[in-house]
Amino acid sequence: MNHRAVDSNAPRDRAADRPSIATTPVPRAAPDHSEACPLSIHDMTVAYHRRPVLWDVDYAAPEGQLVGIVGPNGAGKSTLLKACLGLIPLASGSVRFYGKTYQQARRLVGYVPQRESVDWDFPASALDVVTMGRYGRIPWCLPPGRKQKQAALRCLEQVGMADFARRQISKLSGGQQQRVFLARALAQEAQVYLMDEPFSGVDAATEAAIVTLLRELRARGRTVLVVHHDLQTVPEYFDHVVLLNMRIVAAGPTATVFTRENLQKTYGGRLTLLDQAADAVARAGRT
């Protein structure tokens, strides 16, 4: 519990606020996810095949900020996003967007999966893909209409890809494909965006375009959480940072949290015990 997010905008440590009834640990009361908080995660534990990959994550994202999620490979960064979106079941804990469950708040949340997660040889144009971001607004069994396609086209314009609307997606460069994914998330017209490695494998022009876009989103009051792998650019791109390695090592404003000491804790080899414990849990589950 001692690695809870320390964050000026986040609701303060709730367990500490309550008068403690007894000194023995009690089951925590239902979390008071604040309605003002774009994304609050309470006590989240996630397991793949019974092997825990995220332990006891508590976090409250500050509204209207760019948040970088940083950590070594296998730290559970993508898993954190997917678990928030209900794509992976939680072993315990809860997630709220503006105090609502994801089911209720779906329209408020946009998602950019990893570019490598799809087959880009799929028969579709850039516009087709971006239009998928509008599907949530189209009733079942009906094709997207002209209005939705025009909205999608505007999103392509925002990422500087309007000229490529009709282009088959496999004929786009990696950076262009990433921009198509971002345009699709824009088409969702969300309040909170979860982006999984949008900077991975893109050219300099795309990187600059994405940064501009992120800042525009922030200027419009959107909250963006970005899984990021390039430590060098973290201070430049992000207001807040979450250092993750199977648990939250530290979270808060970049200036205070993104320190050498915290990075060493995140990337250093001190978490082998947690890893071994996870293996033990997985083994116990199998036998």
Binding site: L87, P113, M132, Y135, C141, L142
Partner: peptide, 21 residues
């Protein structure tokens, strides 16, 4: 009838799931 929905899960299943399909 399910053309649009099938297209979505064929191309990007996680995104379809995140959209609530």
């Amino acid at each position: 009838l399910l053309y649009k929905e099938f297209r979505l899960i064929c191309f990007d299943q996680p995104f379809a799931g995140a959209q609530g399909y």
